[in-house]
């Protein structure tokens, strides 16, 4: 579960206050809003990459407000994918597990399992430079899911993909998040994407974050 209670975030001159949002465990939350409304800022606060001025952030009931990103057990898919240019696809997926000192055999097993799930087994030795947009997206997904996060934060991850790849990756996100019982918070501008993926819908307005009961129309 992701729960944001009465949060205020101050980023330079930009301020967003009274943020309230709750997504139950295993469900998919969509966050929409105008450009510059603070969507990414909220996502960064959930990831622990941005400090909040007041309020509380809970993940699976645990208060993580003052915890560092590494201590929150989250997967993060930024808009620009942010792959590590010097690492192979294999090393991307293994990165988090190695940092968290997983046993070598478990790392190998998990990389193979995820690569199969994401259909990138044939790319494991490749570096990001030669990958297509969809392949990069799958690699970033594998990296984010590798350490079995409770929460997945996605910042417009599909915005740069062509229509066919976009649909493929949507199916992939659906299957992977439901298979792993992951709670997701996804920022998007596309209502069609939101309606395909979302269980819960939030919109940033002048009056704060408003929850919509149904799909965006």
């Amino acid at each position: 579960m992701i729960s944001i209670k009465n949060c205020t975030i101050q980023a330079g001159n930009f301020r967003i206050s009274e943020i309230n949002l709750e997504i139950p465990t295993g469900h998919y939350g969509i966050l929409m809003g105008k450009t510059g409304s603070g969507k990414t800022t909220i996502l960064e606060a959930v990831c622990g990459l941005r400090k909040i001025a007041s309020g509380q952030i809970l993940i699976d009931g645990e208060d993580v407000t003052h915890k560092r990103p590494a201590e929150r057990n989250i997967g993060f898919l930024p808009q620009d994918i942010a792959l590590f240019d010097h690492l192979s696809v294999y090393d991307h997926i293994a990165f988090g597990m190695r940092i968290q000192k997983w046993p070598k055999q478990e790392v190998e097993y998990r990389v193979e399992e995820l690569a199969e799930q994401l259909q990138i087994t044939h790319l494991l030795k490749r570096k990001p430079a030669g990958l297509s947009g969809g392949e990069k997206q799958r690699t970033a997904m594998g990296r984010a899911l590798s350490v079995r996060p409770k929460v997945l934060c996605l910042d417009e991850p599909l915005s740069t993909l062509d229509d066919d790849t976009h649909d493929d990756v949507i199916q992939l996100i659906q299957s992977v998040t439901s298979a792993n019982d992951i709670t997701s918070l996804h920022i998007t501008h596309r209502k069609s994407e939101a309606n395909l993926l979302g269980d819960y819908f939030f919109q940033i307005t002048d009056r704060g974050v408003i929850q919509h009961q149904k799909c965006f129309s």
């Binding site: 960064e44 990831c47 622990g48 560092r68 590494a70 942010a82 590590f84 968290q100 984010a144 350490v147």
Partner: peptide, 8 residues
């Protein structure tokens, strides 16, 4: 930042 969410 991504690396930090992965445990760094």
């Amino acid at each position: 930042q991504v690396a930090m969410t992965l445990g760094c």
